[in-house]
Design a protein around this nucleic acid. Structure first.
Lengths: 150, 150
DNA sequence: ATTAATAGTTAAATGAATGAACTATTAATA
DNA sequence: TATTAATAGTTCATTCATTTAACTATTAAT
């Protein structure tokens, strides 16, 4: 990369990531039922996809302390969306799974989000989109790497 | 866009934006002083760039209600980073500006963030990066548009 | 057998967000 | 002009999200 161009590109990235984030999060919130937040939906999504996980897994995925996960899981557990099961081999470990209500709520909301994202991405040619996602993917690995080695 | 590919691309976008967001926000938080949060830095940044703005401007930019802005500005005002001035023509309006302390704190933190983002973006060839930012920019406009017409 | 480390929770404190009710001021209109 | 609308911002109560520090229980290491 040419040093002379760096500052402008960095500024542009900072501005765009802020703006896309805020606007995107706001639209995602609009798809939620009144009794759930976007973080709670992301939690349902992760557990749904991976079937079962531990609070420690979630803390790593969400980049927060485990006590933050305990608090969120408590709120979702009270609403009947999540189950806790102790590992019989290693009794320190807790497995989190979705209840039937959790699954069905997740699927309904995720469908609305898919619809929203589809309508966003429809504004792009397939090739441009694929190129974009390819670079986005690399960026994701770079960020994961920096986070891993810190 | 070919319908058959859509679902995969949508899934990929959802996963990447989540992951880049969480990892990115976590790294940005690491650049903050202990007495400030990333939202507070973003607020300093916006006011710094635009010199002066109203709470309503901030509410629009951050996509939150005005009462959320009042609360954040109060916290930053208590720390001596922000000034409030009433408009003499229209006495309903409040102008927010940075104090000298606010400016200097902003600049120190922003420098660390620039350094971080530079080291991230250094992993890309200039052309790939420019192409990426171009699409990211389009995406930003699409999101802003959807938000405007809702 | 004792000490370390790991998994998870609890509790107190702070920040961030909303909705509803409120003040003050300005704009619209009958 | 007098009354009514709308706008800008704040306050208050409530909920969610997060951190730090202290804690329990369990397993691993020496």
């Amino acid at each position: 990369m040419l040093p002379i161009e760096i500052k402008h590109l960095v500024d542009q990235y900072i501005e765009l990531s802020f703006s896309v984030n805020k606007n995107g999060e706001s639209l995602v919130r609009d798809q939620m039922n009144d009794d759930m937040t976007s973080d709670q939906h992301y939690t349902l999504r992760y557990i749904y996809q991976i079937k079962s996980c531990t609070p420690s897994d979630l803390a790593k995925k969400f980049q927060v302390k485990k006590s933050a996960i305990t608090a969120m899981i408590n709120r979702m557990w009270k609403k009947g969306w999540i189950q806790r099961t102790r590992d019989e081999k290693d009794r320190r470990v807790v497995y989190l799974t979705l209840t039937e209500e959790g699954k069905s709520l997740y699927m309904k909301t995720e469908e609305r989000i898919h619809h929203l994202v589809s309508s966003m991405l429809n504004n792009f040619e397939q090739e441009e989109l694929e190129q974009f996602l390819c670079t986005y993917q690399k960026l994701q690995r770079v960020l994961e790497d920096i986070n891993k080695h810190k």
